[in-house]
Write a protein that binds this DNA or RNA. Structure first.
Length: 502
RNA sequence: GGCGGCGUGGCCAAGUGGUAAGGCAAAGGUCUGCAAAACCUUGAUCACCGGUUCGAAUCCGGUCGCCGCCUCCA
């Protein structure tokens, strides 16, 4: 069974057959950089991050383009408010976006072009559309004529007659059809502007994505993704422009759209004023908790990002981390005899590992069913925990081998979903340890050794039933972010980081 | 008005023709000086009504309820 994906265009799950064998080209709608991104944006980028990781896991060479919309009404408005230039605003939030993405552990795209740097390509396209009669000029504005493009509405499944343009927004009288949209907007005084054959102006919103995707990926690329709110009009317009301009179709092979984020049952949106910023929740929850929450629901369904849901996701994540912690400390324990001889139970368990991986893949192959895939991972966790529990009573010589295999599989599957990734280099740079370390004399004991020493003291205390001392050590270490668990055969510990909640 | 989606145990959420994954919460038990973790055990007939079928949460029709899009938005 190969990979299948739900294509918004056909409203069906389709087998994925990339344009070029073994390669997948994808374009993910990037941010308009006029503000910090909210969790709705965050979800979209997490969804496509997972899709991308899974494609790579399947062996595809993935090439990913993501734009920055750095010229736009909202950016201009923001600049006015803050007394800055639109460019300053754009660069600032561009940087903030990159920080948020890194914090969420989203893989950076291969190319992230800016709209303002793609203007020549856009002018070229607009010119071409004019020449072919798909567009017209009015007072320095250029509009796309939707009536000239027969396929208009095919993505959002609606016809021009069905749409009630002007019902909620006043229609520009100069347009030939109410649904016509701007390719180029003439500049008002004080706005950023570029020279064009139609006078000074700036691009309309939709044209940039067409220009960039055609430039970097070419006609008929594989995956175009974004939130469901982009289906109409943004992606519909992109199709119209691109197919009209090139005279070819399709513009995109597979359209993938993720569902919305709700906050307490309501759609999160700017007008409702219930925006939650990515950087706000990352102050309260680890990035993997946010990722876990998105993974536990299918990408096309709505998700509630309320505090209850996040708490729950965090506890689910802890179950995963606890299992890994238990495996790691089990494997770190010095063992006297290791032998490959497996018990019947161990033969069955290690055989089942293949099964887990197969079921994981089946789930992901079916339109990236991460909720199902997480279910498989949690079943694996249960098996591994049960096995470790057995080992406490009845150690077996092959245990390190089996536990090692289990650990490798668990980590492998989690990382396909972007969970439990090793900390990034950038993060380590943030730790203020660097300088101090230089000053330490050679041979200064590592922190790990000192922790071990404390735990030896604690073990001694426990043996003498001096529980006050033992508990004191445990709680003080806990305050420093070191978690200590007592097991039947000894203690295990791990640096889990300081808990900074609220 | 048009188009689309949803309604599964206390909560979240997979499943879309063969008698319901998983997570969180809860209860009891095991382990344990305490704590934490973990393990074992316990619970849903799938909004409602009717139909198709040997058999439906899963297909068809209807009813009720919720939501989204048609406007900038991930």
């Amino acid at each position: 069974m190969g990979l299948r994906v739900y294509n918004t265009m056909t409203r069906r799950k389709e087998d994925v057959v990339p344009r070029a064998e073994g390669e997948v080209s994808m374009y993910v709608g990037g941010p308009t950089v006029y503000n910090y991104i909210h969790v709705g944006n965050g979800r979209a980028y997490l969804v496509f991050d997972v899709i991308r990781r899974y494609l790579q896991y399947k062996g595809y060479q993935v090439y990913c383009v993501q734009n920055f919309t750095d010229v736009d009404d909202k950016i201009i408005a923001r600049a006015m408010e803050e007394g800055k230039t639109p460019e300053e605003v754009a660069r600032f939030y561009e940087q903030a976006f990159l920080e948020d993405m890194r914090a969420l552990r989203v893989m950076p795209p291969d190319v992230s072009p800016r709209a303002t740097e793609t203007i020549p390509r856009m002018l070229e396209m607009i010119q071409g559309l004019l020449e072919k009669g798909y567009a017209y000029v009015v007072d320095g504005d250029v509009f796309f004529s939707v009536e000239r493009f027969p396929g208009y509405g095919k993505l959002s499944r609606r016809t021009l007659e069905e749409m009630r343009a002007g019902e909620r927004v006043e229609v520009d009288e100069r347009k030939r059809h109410p649904m016509d949209f701007a390719l180029w907007k003439s500049a008002k005084p004080g706005e950023p502007a570029w020279d064009s054959p139609w006078g000074k102006g700036r691009p309309g919103w939709h044209i940039e994505c067409s220009a960039m995707s055609l430039h970097y990926l070419g006609m008929g690329f594989d995956i175009h993704g974004g939130g469901q709110d982009l289906i109409f009009p943004h992606h519909e317009n992109e199709i119209a422009q691109s197919e009209a301009y090139t005279g070819q179709e399709p513009f995109v092979r597979y359209w993938i759209h993720n569902g919305f984020v709700n906050i307490r049952e309501e759609k999160m949106s700017k007008s409702l004023g219930n925006i939650v910023l990515v950087r706000e929740i990352l102050k309260k929850y680890p990035p993997d908790a946010v990722r876990m929450l998105t993974l536990q629901t299918h990408y096309r369904s709505p998700i509630d990002f309320g505090p209850e849901a996040l708490e729950e996701a965090q506890r689910a994540l802890e179950r995963l981390e606890n299992c890994l912690f238990a495996l790691d400390s089990f494997l770190a324990k010095p063992t006297t005899r290791v032998a490959p001889v497996r018990t019947q139970r161990e033969v069955e368990l290690s055989d089942s590992f293949f099964d887990f991986e197969r079921r994981f893949e089946e789930a992901m192959d079916d339109d990236f069913n991460t909720a199902k895939a997480m279910g498989v991972i949690f079943e694996l966790v249960k098996e591994l925990n049960a096995y470790l529990a057995e080992q406490e009573r009845f150690p077996t010589p092959a245990a390190p081998i089996i536990a090692g295999l289990g650990r490798d599989l668990l980590l492998k599957l989690c990382r396909v979903l972007g969970l439990l990734q090793p900390p990034e280099e950038a993060e380590e740079e943030c730790l203020p340890a660097e300088e101090g370390e230089e000053k330490k004399p050679a041979g200064f004991p590592a922190a790990e050794d000192l922790v071990e020493l404390l735990l030896e003291v604690r073990a001694l205390a426990r043996r003498k039933k001096e529980y006050e001392t033992a508990d004191f050590i445990r709680s003080r270490l806990g305050e420093m972010g070191i978690r200590v668990d007592d097991l039947r055969e000894g203690q295990r510990w791990k640096y889990v980081g300081r808990q900074e909640r609220d």
